[in-house]
Amino acid sequence: MAASSVVEEQTTKDDLILPPDYELQAPEPEHCPGPESEGAGKSDACNGCANKDICESLPKGPDPDIPLIIENLSQIQHKILVLSGKGGVGKSTFSAMLSWALSADENLQVGAMDLDICGPSLPRMLGCNKEVVHESNTGLTPVYVADNLATMSIQYLLPEDDSAIVWRGSKKNQLIKKFLKDVDWDYLDFLIVDTPPGTSDEHISINKFMKESGIDGALVVTTPQEVALLDVRKEIDFCRKAGINVLGLVENMSGFVCPSCKGESQIFRPTTGGGKAFCKELNIPFLGSVPLDPRIGKCCDSGESFLDLYPDSPATDAILDVVEALRDTIEGK
C-alpha cells in the first residue's frame, strides 16, 4: 500500500477515537501561518493554496477550548512536565518513579499523563498497559493504578497493543487537547506529564493549551554523554523561548556498578562534565544523578515499583533524593 492511502486510511480509522475539526485538501505550504492562527487564509503563502477557503472559514481569535481546559484542570495543585530533547534517557522511567514515589504518601492524589502518542511507555511501566478506557458523557475516566494514582495514555484507547499511530502533528494536537479538556482527574496534588523526545507539536501544544492553567515547570532528564546533552540543550532553549520554568535537571544512567566485582564504570561517559557541569553552565538547578541498576529496567518491563521492591538499592536513594529536591522547589515557592 502506498504512503498516502495509508494516511487516509488511518484518518478514517482514527475518527472512531477523535473526529477531526477540519480536513485540509492539500499539505500546508512552507510558510503556512497555521490553519488555526489569526492570519490563516490571509497571509502571502495562502494565495494559491488549496486550503485557503477552509482556513479562512475556521474560527479565529482566542481558542474557545482554553477556558474549558482551565476549568477541567482547576483542581490540580501542581503540574510538572517531564522533558528531554533526547529519546531513551528515561523520561517515562522517571515519570513512573516520580508517580510511585509521590503516591507512596497516601495523603497525596497523583495523576500521570502520557503525551507520547507514537510511543507510549508509561502504562507498561505502571503495570496497566492492558487497560481500556471508554469515553462517556462525563469525559474520559483515567485508569487508576492505586487509589491515589490515576493515569491517562493513548495506549488505553488503542484497539491492539501494537497498533501504530501514524499521525501527523495536527492530529496529535487534537488528542492532547482532548486529554486536557475531557479527562476527569478530579482533585490532584500533582499531575506529572510525560512527553515524547524533541521540540515539536506535542511540546508546543501542551505549553499553549496549559499555560493559562499554570505549569509549575519542567523536570529535564538527561544522560551523561555529550550527544545527549546536545539535544537537552535544545530542549532548555525551547523552555526559555516558551517561558517554561526549568525546575531542575536529573542525570540518569550515570555510572554502573558491576554486580560481579563491584567495580564502577561510566557507560555513557560524561566527557564534557555530564549533567552537573551542564547545569552550572546554563544556570539551572541540578537535582542529582541516578546510577544505572539493571533491575530498574526489569521493573519497568513488569510494571512494578522499583522503589518498593528494592528499597536498598543506591538508585532508590538517589531517586528519592531527586523527588525530595523537586518537591522542595515546587512547594517552597
Binding site: S200, D201, R233, K234, D237, F238, K241, A242
Partner: peptide
C-alpha cells in the same frame, strides 16, 4: 548555534 532549538510543527518539518 548548537544550542538553538528547532521548534517546528509538522508542516515545516515536511517542507
Amino acid at each position: 548555534d548548537r544550542s538553538n532549538s528547532v521548534v517546528w510543527r509538522g508542516p515545516k518539518k515536511t517542507a
